[in-house]
Design a protein around this nucleic acid. Structure first.
Lengths: 336, 336
DNA sequence: GTGAAAGCGCTAACAT
DNA sequence: ATGTTAGCGCTTTCAC
C-alpha cells in the first residue's frame, strides 16, 4: 500500500506538498511538481478515497432505489443513471426494495451511515415518509416515475396524458368496449393513468363499464388470471394495459384463450421497453424516455450535490415532465 | 452529527467504552452498558462507517461487474447477488462494462481506491488480465458465467452439455437440418455451446453444414439479419439459439418472414429468462439457475472476504458447476 | 513555495 | 472494567 506519506518521503517533500500536487492546486514550483509526479509514478501511488472521503465528508457515491431490477423498465433507467454517474466520477449503489417499505428504510439508514452523497428514488410510496425526511434533513434527493406532489426534485412523465393518448387512439380507430389493466391503486401513476382512461372515454362520449376495469391483485402476473376471467364474460374490443410488462401478460392470456391479436382484441401499453418491439405481435404503446429519465435524474442529483458542497441553501425543487410518444405497431387494428 | 466522542461525554465514559458497547464486546459493566445505550438512544447516534472502514481496512461493499444490466440474463443474477449481499450486511456497486475492457479497467482502478472488499465478475473476457491481476494481488474475486480455466473461484454451468442437450432433443424429435445462432466466438461459453452442437450432430450421425452456422456480427440484434439471410437460401427444421435473447430475435425474424413456429421451424434456446415463457410461442429452452448463480457467487465471495480478514492464505479456488434443465414449451414440435 | 500539525470518527493495544 | 493514546490516510489552515 503506497500512501501519501511514502510518496512524500520518496520525493523528499512534505505530505502537504504532495497533496497539493495531486489536487492540482497552484503555488507549487514547477520542478517540485515534476519530482512529486515522478515519485507518484514510480511508486504507482493512488490515493485512498476512503480517507479523502472521511476528511471531506463526501463519498462520490449515490444510491439508486428501485422496486426491482427485474421489472423491465428499470434496467434502462439504471443504465441512464449509471452512465451519467460514471461520467461525473460517481459510483452507484443499487437497491431493490421490492416495494417493501421496511427494506427501503433499512437501506436509507445503512446508506446514511455510509455518507452516501444523494439518492435517486424510483420506489417512492405514498407512505415513504423516511424519503421525505431525508430531503428535509438536507440530503440531495431526486424522485423518478413516482411522484406525489412533494417539494422534491423529480423526473416524471404526464401519466394522465399518456393514458389519455393511448385510449383516444383506440377510440379513434373504432374501439368501443375498451378494458383496462390497472396497476396498484396506491401508486398515483396508476391512479392517473386510470383517470386518463376514464377521461378519454368521457370526452368521446363512451360509457364507463366497471366490469371492464381490472385491478392488479398480487403482482403483474395476476393479470393473467384477471384477463382470463374477463374473457369468460365478454370479449372487449381492446385492452389498455397501464404498463408494457402488464400488456405482455395480458397478451399471453388472450392467446392462451385462443383469441387473436389484433383481429379479435387490440392491446396497447405504456412504456416501450425493449421487448415491446420483439413480442408477437409487436406492441403498440406510449413510449416514455426511460434512459433519459435515468440520465436526467442523475444529472440533477449531481448538480444538487455539487451545489450543496458550496454550502448554499438547496435550490427550489423542479419537477421535469418528459415527453411521451405514441408508437403504433401491430397489436392494434382499426375496428368496423 | 453525533459522534462517538459526544456519546462518550454525554454518558460520562471514554470513547473506547462506547466503542466496546457498540461492538457488543465483553468486559463492560452492565450498568455502564445501559448508560451508554441510553446515550446512544437519546442522541440518536449511528456510527460513521467511513471512519470505521478507514480504521479496519474494509468497507463491506462488493462490486458486481457485468456486460450490461440490459441483457435480460443479468437482472436475475443481480437480484441473487444483491439479496445475498444484503443478508450478510454488504452493499453492492453495479458496474456495466459494455464488454469494453477499458471501462472494466477504469472501474477496477476506481474501486480499488475505494477499498472495495471483493469483486464478482460476469464480464470476463479472455484478455481481462487486470482481473487476473486483481486475484493475484490477493483480492477476493468470484467469476460467473464466463470462465477460462484460470485459478479463480467461479460459478458456471456446463455449456457444452447444455447445448448438447438442446440439440440432442431436437434430433430425437425428428429434426435434421438444425441451424445455430452462435454468440461471439471470443467468449468461451459460446465456443463451448457451438462444440456441444457439433458433437450432438456428430454423435447422432448428422452432417455439419457450415451454411447453417450463423455467427454474431454486431450484437444480439444482428441475428435478425442473419436469420433472414439464412432463410433466403433454405428453411432449416430448427434453429438452436445459444441464448434466449438471441432466440427471441430469431423468432421475430422468422415470423416477419411469414413462417410459423414450430410448424415450419422449431426454435430452442439456453437461459430461461422471464420472457421465455411469455413470448409467442413460449420458448423451449435449457434453463440455467440464474438467481442461484448470483446468490452462490455472492456467498462464495463473502466467505472469501471473511476468510481473508482472518489473514490466512486464500483457499484453493473452487469452480461450481450448476445443473441445467431442458424446459419443453411450444416453440419446438416433433417432425415427420 | 513549502512544511508542521491538527483533525475527520473510529478501533484496539496498552495501561490502570 | 474502564480510560489513554496512537494511528488509519488524507486535507487544510497557519507558520515560516
Amino acid at each position: 500500500m503506497t500512501t501519501l506519506k511514502k510518496v512524500a518521503e520518496y520525493a523528499g517533500v512534505s505530505t502537504s506538498t504532495v497533496s497539493r500536487v495531486i489536487a492540482g492546486k497552484p503555488y507549487v514550483k514547477e520542478e517540485t511538481r515534476r519530482r512529486v509526479l515522478q515519485a507518484v509514478q514510480e511508486l504507482s501511488y493512488s490515493p485512498n478515497i476512503l480517507a479523502k472521503s472521511l476528511k471531506e465528508g463526501r463519498t462520490n457515491t449515490i444510491a439508486l432505489m428501485i422496486p426491482s431490477i427485474q421489472n423491465q423498465m428499470f434496467p434502462i433507467v439504471t443504465r441512464g443513471v449509471e452512465d451519467t454517474a460514471r461520467k461525473y466520477g460517481y459510483t452507484v449503489i443499487l437497491c431493490n426494495t421490492d416495494e417493501n417499505i421496511e427494506v427501503e428504510k433499512e437501506y436509507i439508514r445503512k446508506l446514511q451511515d455510509r455518507w452516501i452523497d444523494g439518492f435517486i428514488v424510483g420506489s417512492m410510496l405514498p407512505a415513504s415518509d423516511h424519503i421525505r425526511k431525508l430531503k428535509a434533513d438536507g440530503f440531495p434527493v431526486v424522485l423518478t416515475s413516482r411522484y406525489y406532489g412533494d417539494p422534491i426534485d423529480a423526473v416524471i412523465i404526464d401519466n394522465h396524458r399518456a393514458a389519455y393518448d393511448a385510449v383516444s387512439y383506440l377510440i379513434k380507430t373504432g374501439h368501443e368496449k375498451i378494458a383496462i389493466a390497472v396497476g396498484r391503486r396506491q401508486l398515483s401513476l396508476y391512479q392517473q393513468r386510470l383517470e386518463g382512461y376514464l377521461d378519454a372515454l368521457k370526452d368521446h362520449g363512451l360509457p364507463v363499464d366497471e366490469s371492464l376495469i381490472m385491478h392488479e391483485t398480487h403482482g403483474t402476473n395476476s393479470f393473467y388470471g384477471l384477463t382470463q376471467k374477463l374473457l369468460d364474460n365478454l370479449i372487449p374490443d381492446a385492452i389498455f394495459a397501464t404498463s408494457d410488462p402488464k400488456a405482455i401478460v395480458v397478451i399471453r392470456a388472450i392467446k392462451d384463450r385462443g383469441l387473436r391479436i389484433p383481429e379479435d382484441i387490440s392491446v396497447i401499453g405504456i412504456d416501450d421497453i425493449e421487448m415491446s418491439a420483439l413480442i408477437e405481435p409487436p406492441l403498440t404503446t406510449v413510449s416514455q424516455p426511460l434512459y433519459k429519465i435515468g440520465a436526467l435524474a442523475a444529472k440533477k442529483l449531481i448538480a444538487l450535490i455539487e451545489h450543496k458542497n458550496k454550502s448554499k441553501d438547496p435550490p427550489a425543487p423542479v419537477v421535469d415532465v418528459l415527453e411521451t410518444e405514441l408508437i403504433i405497431r401491430k397489436s392494434t387494428a382499426r375496428r368496423k
